[in-house]
Computed example of a mutant assay.
Amino acid sequence: MGRVLARVLGVVFVLWAVVTLTWFGAYAIPGEPAEAVLGGSGSKATAEQLAQIRAEYGFDRPLLTQYADMLGGLLHGDLGASYALKTPVTEIIGQTLAGTLVLAALSLAVAWAVAVLVALGSTRDSRLGTALGSLLEVTAVAVPHFWLGSVLILVFSVGLGWLPPISAPGAAGLVLPVLSLALPLAGFLGQVMRESFLAALDAPFTLSARARGETETRVRLVHALRHAALPAISLSGWAFGSLVSGAVVVETLFSRPGLGRTLLSGVLDGDIPVIVGVVLVIAVVYILVTFATEAADRIADPRLKAASRPSEAAAW
């Protein structure tokens, strides 16, 4: 119970810190909220109009009072309404959340598949394969999302005409955005997995498996791969968070509706409720994925499950 209570308090603190830093950071954006309500800095609002909006929305009150009201609303499940769209933030997030989660989940799956293939191919007894795999991993890690997405559009949309240059309904519209997010992450996961894979191939349990007469393919796929996947599984929570962050660029590049594009629009418009709401939802998703990653760690590595129980930990 103490461990659960500590975990709950930690989650509450993280969410409070995220909301606080985001809210005060949003207020540091040039301009003022009253201008955002009236259509932005280009609206040419008069002083009387600005004063009316400040009084109507409470922008003329002390900053700490506005902050306390915002926290009170969050505690009651109210994220407020968008200044620019005059729509509840929960409704805006509800319309865009699924698109970003699908994009991030597919990108993580593709990144894992590519990383496993590269790790398996670059750990065979071939110096050329090892060098080529290492080169591909380093190159993928160093490529920015926006550059990779632009190249993919030029090659597969403009040059070959195989895929749409912007996001479209159906699977074809997801291919280029998913690849733009997945390939850089695949390079990072592949680096981590390959080093663990090489260590696992020389570990005592793989030597024992070979001594029992198991084939090299079974040793690599059943024993070594499971061990090599452990560090990558631990990093999957961080990886999912990085994919959601990268979605800001990719969704904008491919004109794909989602949380990332909504967040960018909120920042450009100075729409503080949208900024705080989207960042809060992303933080909640990241925390849930982190918990799921920890559970996957325990399933893949029985030693972690045993360590959580004192009697079994002593046996180990």
Rank of each mutant, 00 (worst) to 15 (best):
265 S>V: 10
217 T>S: 11
136 L>H: 02
41 S>R: 11
306 A>P: 02
16 W>E: 03
83 Y>G: 08
101 L>S: 10
169 P>W: 07
144 P>N: 04
254 F>G: 08
206 T>R: 12
55 A>P: 01
120 L>K: 02
309 R>H: 13
188 F>D: 04
165 P>C: 08
180 S>L: 07
37 V>W: 02
299 I>P: 05
240 F>A: 08
194 R>H: 01
78 D>T: 07
70 M>N: 00
232 A>F: 00
268 L>Y: 11
275 I>E: 04
205 F>W: 02
144 P>I: 10
126 S>E: 14
7 R>L: 08
161 G>N: 11
306 A>N: 11
169 P>V: 12
102 V>P: 00
58 G>I: 02
139 T>Y: 06
299 I>H: 06
95 Q>E: 14
220 R>I: 05
55 A>C: 03
258 G>R: 11
283 A>F: 13
105 A>N: 03
7 R>G: 04
106 L>F: 07
4 V>T: 13
80 G>W: 14
21 L>C: 12
98 A>Y: 14
177 P>L: 14
31 G>R: 12
148 L>W: 07
7 R>Q: 09
87 T>A: 06
283 A>S: 15
12 V>H: 06
231 P>D: 00
245 S>I: 05
209 A>K: 06
222 V>C: 03
287 I>M: 12
122 S>I: 09
253 L>D: 03
174 L>I: 03
254 F>T: 08
48 E>L: 06
152 L>N: 03
6 A>Q: 08
258 G>Y: 08
12 V>C: 13
313 A>S: 06
214 E>L: 15
24 F>N: 10
278 V>M: 12
153 I>D: 04
168 A>F: 01
8 V>P: 01
49 Q>L: 01
165 P>H: 04
113 A>L: 15
124 R>L: 13
85 L>S: 14
237 G>F: 07
51 A>N: 10
64 L>I: 15
276 V>R: 02
239 A>L: 08
128 L>G: 11
262 T>E: 15
304 L>C: 11
74 L>G: 08
232 A>E: 01
2 G>A: 12
